[in-house]
Simulated scan of single mutants.
Amino acid sequence: MSFFKRLKESVASKTESVTQKFMSGLSKTSSSLVGAMNDLFTGRNKIDEELYEELEEILISADVGVKTTMDLVERLREEVKERKVKDPSELQPLLSEMIGEMLTREEQANQLTMNQEGLTVILFVGVNGVGKTTTIGKLAHHFKQEGKKVVLAAGDTFRAGAIEQLETWGRRVGVDVIKHQAGADPAAVIYDGIQAAKSRKADILLCDTAGRLQNKVNLMEELKKIHRVVQREVPGAPHEVLLVLDATTGQNALIQARQFGEAVNVSGIVLTKLDGTAKGGIVVSISHELQLPVKFVGLGEKADDLQEFDSEQFLHAMFKDAIEQEEVEA
């Protein structure tokens, strides 16, 4: 059974509404990246160096990243040689399978770590403008839909409007928001958030933090202090430190990930605005180069458009045209 056929059968057993969200959210990337790859593979009658060079350009232009692209193409060369592949049309399923292996290497890591014996504390980090506060609101909605009791802590006391924005999401979703005045000590806000979450017997505390990177020393010290407070009040916490990145910024997102990785022990990525870019290859780049699991992806503006990352749904949505073409030819 071909890789594309196995992929379609696997996705067929999953929730149809989620499949549609991935298809819609990744339509720009699929059209741009896979469309260009399809033109390349079907427009050639032999596999040569020129084909590999053009493939590199296509992948890099889709923000798959230079290192990831080179690794993929080098491995493709090896597979072509080993399997004695002659027809360029056979390269697309081969390449998609390799991308799938990069994304599914640690499938379990894509799932959130939850505290089974009490309060789960999740910290959110990321520069301003990436959709961090919105992500917290959407994730609060996600957990509420699962029947969990959620509290939010407005730990970004640095940015004007951050507290009010989180309060707006709190009202919209129907969860309590713990806050101090602007300019207050973020660690004190998180401390109060933990106490409030405990007293209200909440399941999950979602903590916003300041998004500045201009002075990494201040950011690092602030995050270290928050860590100490959280660890002291909830042993084993924070259970997740999620870095929120904007997919539309492409390789800048990768740079931000490295910078935050130097400041705090990031456990996973939330990639927002994936529906707004044709360069969804950044998902592959992040997963491969940073060895960090993508936990959630933003596929639209609605509260339920923040979806748990599913590598099979991602690949199915990316290569939908190629999958359909294979069925026609069969």
Rank of each mutant, 00 (worst) to 15 (best):
F3R: 08
F4Y: 13
R6N: 10
K8P: 00
A12G: 00
K21V: 05
K21W: 04
K21D: 07
M23Q: 15
G25N: 06
G25F: 08
L26V: 06
T29K: 01
S30E: 03
A36L: 02
M37R: 05
D39M: 00
L40E: 07
N45P: 04
I47D: 10
I47K: 13
E49Y: 04
Y52E: 11
E57L: 10
I60M: 12
D63A: 09
G65P: 09
K67V: 15
V73H: 06
E74F: 00
L76E: 08
E79R: 12
E82Y: 00
R83N: 08
K84A: 10
V85M: 03
S89D: 03
E90S: 07
Q92C: 01
I99W: 03
G100H: 14
E106H: 14
M114N: 09
N115R: 12
L123R: 08
F124H: 11
V125W: 13
G131E: 08
G131R: 02
T133A: 04
K144L: 09
V151D: 08
T157S: 09
L166D: 13
R171D: 14
R172F: 05
V173L: 04
K179R: 14
H180K: 10
D185P: 05
D185V: 06
A187M: 00
V189P: 02
G193A: 12
G193F: 10
G193S: 14
I194H: 03
D203C: 07
L205I: 01
D208V: 05
A210K: 10
N215L: 13
N218S: 15
L223R: 13
K224M: 08
P235M: 00
P235N: 07
A237F: 09
L243C: 09
L245W: 09
I269A: 00
V270W: 07
T272M: 06
L274C: 09
T277N: 12
A278C: 13
V284D: 11
S285F: 12
I286H: 07
H288C: 03
E289R: 13
V297D: 07
G298L: 00
G300E: 06
L306M: 06
E308D: 02
D310I: 07
Q313S: 14
E324I: 01
E324K: 04
E326K: 11
E329L: 12
A330Q: 08
